[in-house]
């Protein structure tokens, strides 16, 4: 039996485990980063504001998108309201808010927020309407989504 061969030392550092480590990092990042869940059907360019706060975790925030539809030839150019993946009408806002609250775990109920993500080109009318609808529900803590900026 050729015992001599085995005795030969291998001077190289074994790198075969390196891809595994990198893959683990990769998976960690893939899992921990949140991709945008909703495909937006409306154009939303957020306005700028100075006094902005970081929002709560994504599962505690219900998003309402308002803006002009991307497919103008199909949905027109009037601002529409989108929640989750669908357009809704004003009278469905209350139901949406109630369902969103119901999905939040009991301990986090008081940290529930609604984020109104309105486009810069909006008029107040639709925002006021949504605000009035939300006032009918228990979703009274809202954010006007904005990007940090503006004059100091």
């Amino acid at each position: 039996m050729p015992f001599k061969k085995k005795a030969k030392p291998n001077p190289e550092i074994p790198t075969s485990a390196l891809p595994d480590i990198i893959f683990m990092l990769l998976f960690f990042f893939m899992v921990s980063t949140v991709m945008r869940e909703n495909t937006l059907k409306v154009n939303v360019l957020l306005p700028q504001a100075n006094q902005v706060q970081k929002m709560e975790k994504a599962n505690l925030v219900a998003n309402i998108y308002i803006g002009k539809p991307k497919e103008a030839d199909q949905f027109g150019t009037a601002p529409r309201i989108q929640v989750n993946d669908v357009f809704i009408n004003l009278d469905q806002i209350q139901q949406f808010a109630i369902e969103a609250i119901a999905n939040v775990p009991e301990v986090d109920k008081n940290r529930f927020r609604v984020a109104i993500k309105g486009d810069v080109g909006l008029d107040m009318g639709v925002v006021i309407d949504i605000r009035e609808e939300l006032r009918e529900t228990e979703a009274l803590k809202i954010y006007y989504a904005a990007s940090k900026g503006g004059d100091e």
Binding site: Q53, L140, K141, S147
Partner: peptide, 15 residues
């Protein structure tokens, strides 16, 4: 991927 850092102006609505 951008780590979610959504910001907004907070308001309490009156019931």
């Amino acid at each position: 991927t951008r780590i979610a850092s959504e910001k907004g102006v907070y308001r309490d609505l009156a019931p």
